[in-house]
Amino acid sequence: RATRRPLNRGLWGEQRVADPTRIRALAPLPETADEARAVAAALGGGRIFLREETRESKVKSIDLSLYRNVLFATHGAMASDFVDFGEPALVMTPPAVASELDDGLLSANEIASLRLNADWVLLSACNTAAADGTPGAEGLSGLAKSFFHAGARNLLVSHWAVVSESTVLITTGAFRELAAQPQHGRIRALHKAVVQVMNDERYRHPVFWAPFVLVGEGR
């Protein structure tokens, strides 16, 4: 079972540019491709970006305002112990050579600069509800705040490291429930998906299903 674990202190280095070699050393998450396809199928179609199409520079160039539902299924990077070293980020496909435009990490500040018009953004990664890393910062002040600033109305975020297998079941299950009974809304769809995972004897421990929370408009 692969964990979409957060990265730790020191990834950015002195210039706040990530080392692509360290990003490439992360455990691969091949199941995320199936996760994206299953979510798109539940929605009746959609655009899927995989591998080279998920480079940071590519993501920044996409007009994400065209999409009402957006899924990022990847590793999550928390802010390091000292804010000078970096900020929360989502891991993208790393480049051969890092630059400020593309170092393999879509940081909180870069996310805030995106243009979204999404009813729901799902951050299928670790610790996406975490703080921005500044002393005394509150939860949801990192990636979540950035996505709201960019134009997301609702987010699915996680409070700790997530296990990839159960994460796939939760995100895909939530969209299938929402497609089947849209009148019940996102929160009931997520609840049903979580209950289904809880009832599977392989995933009864809270580590598998409890980290996720829906935040946003609540409509």
Rank of each mutant, 00 (worst) to 15 (best):
R47T: 14
T54W: 09
L116M: 11
A18R: 02
N117R: 15
G76P: 09
L66M: 11
P20S: 07
N8I: 12
G44D: 13
V207W: 10
V17C: 06
V83G: 06
R9H: 14
L66Y: 06
H149M: 11
G151S: 04
S107W: 06
R55I: 00
Q183T: 11
T21H: 08
R188I: 11
D200R: 14
A189S: 15
L123D: 01
E87A: 11
N117V: 07
C126Y: 06
V83W: 14
T172Y: 09
A150I: 10
A42I: 08
L178Y: 08
S57N: 03
A137V: 06
P182E: 08
K58V: 13
V70L: 10
N199G: 08
T171C: 08
W120S: 04
V70T: 01
A98L: 10
M92C: 15
V97P: 00
E87Y: 06
L43R: 04
D132P: 06
L71V: 13
S113I: 05
G76N: 09
S158K: 04
N69C: 11
N109R: 14
L116E: 10
E56F: 03
A210Q: 04
W160D: 03
A118W: 02
T171M: 10
R55S: 05
W160L: 05
H205S: 14
E201R: 15
A189C: 12
D200C: 14
G45H: 08
F147Q: 02
T54P: 05
R176C: 07
N127H: 13
L155S: 03
E217N: 04
D34E: 13
R24L: 04
A193T: 09
R24N: 10
V17D: 04
V194G: 05
P6D: 09
R176A: 14
R37K: 03
V213P: 01
E35D: 01
R202L: 14
L114S: 05
I62A: 00
W209I: 05
A210D: 03
E14I: 03
P135E: 10
M198K: 15
T74W: 00
N199P: 02
A38G: 11
G173Q: 10
L122M: 15
G136N: 05
A129F: 03
A2Q: 12
H191S: 13
F175E: 01
A73R: 08
K58Y: 00
E165L: 14
A174D: 09
S65E: 13
P95E: 08
W160I: 00
S166I: 11
E177D: 14
S113C: 10
R176N: 15
V207N: 12
S166G: 07
I187H: 11
V215I: 10
E201M: 12
A118M: 01
E35V: 09
R204Y: 06
A144K: 12
A125K: 03
V59K: 01
H191F: 09
P94V: 01
T134W: 06
A98Q: 05
Q15T: 08
C126V: 03
E177Y: 13
V215P: 01
S80I: 01
R51L: 13
G46C: 10
G136I: 07
L64Y: 06
L64N: 02
A42V: 10
